[in-house]
Amino acid sequence: MRHDEMIGKVQALAQLPDRGSAERATHAVLRTLGERLPAGLAGHLAAQLTPELAAPVRAATASAAADGRPSGIGERFGLPVFAGRIAGRAGTDEDAALREAAAVLEVLDAALAPELMTKVGEELPSDIRELLPSGRSTEDTGGTGDNGPG
């Protein structure tokens, strides 16, 4: 899926007023998702995105490496921290951040390989996994994603 198409779909799904808002929301969600996922999985995610959308995911993994965090695990945080980070980055409140995250995840689900989205879902704690499209959020992924602090 092309960059403009993905941003347009996020704008429509999240009912955002303009493309700039959709771009900010998408980048905020992808950066935060990149922080939550192990570096290898985040790299696979970035590889299936356009360069513009891969950049925030790669920035998250680069930041983790610079901070000396192990690459095999992502940061452990739950929905409150996830929503707070997205809200701060997108310049919105947490309720809007959750709507925007759900929209971005739905667009990603349509754009990326199903196997990759299954792996992403497996790494997310159940509270964040609820933001995935209904078919994925109800799957019993048996994943390792824990809620952790937050």
Rank of each mutant, 00 (worst) to 15 (best):
Gly40Ser: 15
Gly40Thr: 12
Gly40Asn: 14
Leu41Pro: 11
Ala42Pro: 13
Gly43Ile: 12
His44Lys: 15
His44Met: 15
His44Glu: 15
Leu45Met: 10
Leu45Ser: 07
Leu45Gly: 08
Ala46Gly: 05
Ala47Asp: 14
Ala47Gln: 12
Ala47Ser: 15
Ala47Gly: 14
Thr50Met: 03
Thr50Lys: 04
Pro51Trp: 03
Pro51Gly: 03
Glu52Gln: 14
Leu53Phe: 13
Leu53Met: 12
Leu53Trp: 12
Leu53Lys: 07
Ala54Val: 01
Ala54Trp: 04
Ala54Ile: 03
Ala55His: 12
Pro56Phe: 09
Pro56Leu: 11
Pro56Asp: 09
Pro56Asn: 10
Val57Asp: 08
Val57Gly: 06
Arg58Ser: 10
Arg58Cys: 05
Arg58Asn: 14
Ala59His: 12
Ala59Phe: 07
Ala60Ser: 15
Thr61Ala: 07
Thr61His: 07
Ala62Tyr: 08
Ala62Met: 13
Ser63Gln: 15
Ala64His: 12
Ala64Lys: 15
Ala64Cys: 07
Ala65Met: 09
Ala65Phe: 04
Ala65Val: 12
Ala65Ser: 14
Ala65Ile: 09
Ala65Pro: 09
Ala66Val: 04
Ala66Trp: 04
Gly68Ala: 10
Gly68Arg: 10
Arg69Gln: 14
Arg69Pro: 05
Pro70Gln: 10
Ser71Leu: 08
Gly72Ile: 05
Gly72Tyr: 08
Gly72Phe: 09
Ile73Pro: 00
Ile73Leu: 11
Gly74Arg: 05
Glu75Ile: 07
Glu75Leu: 13
Glu75Lys: 13
Arg76Trp: 05
Arg76Ala: 13
Arg76Leu: 12
Arg76Gly: 09
Phe77Met: 07
Phe77Ile: 03
Phe77Val: 04
Phe77Ser: 09
Leu79Val: 02
Leu79Cys: 01
Pro80Thr: 08
Pro80Tyr: 03
Pro80Leu: 04
Pro80Ser: 07
Val81Glu: 13
Val81Arg: 13
Phe82Lys: 02
Phe82Asp: 02
Phe82Ile: 02
Phe82Tyr: 11
Ala83Arg: 09
Gly84His: 08
Gly84Pro: 06
Gly84Ala: 11
Arg85Lys: 13
Arg85Tyr: 07
Arg85Asp: 07
Arg85Cys: 02
Ile86Tyr: 05
Ile86Arg: 04
Ile86Trp: 04
Ile86Gln: 05
Ala87Gln: 03
Ala87Lys: 02
Gly88Gln: 03
Arg89Val: 01
Arg89Leu: 12
Arg89Cys: 01
Ala90Trp: 00
Ala90Ser: 03
Ala90Thr: 00
Ala90Pro: 01
Ala90Glu: 01
Thr92Glu: 02
Thr92Tyr: 00
Asp93Cys: 02
Asp93Pro: 02
Glu94Asp: 01
Glu94Asn: 00
Asp95Ala: 02
Asp95Phe: 00
Ala96Val: 00
Ala96Asn: 00
Ala97Asn: 00
Ala97Gly: 01
Ala97Gln: 01
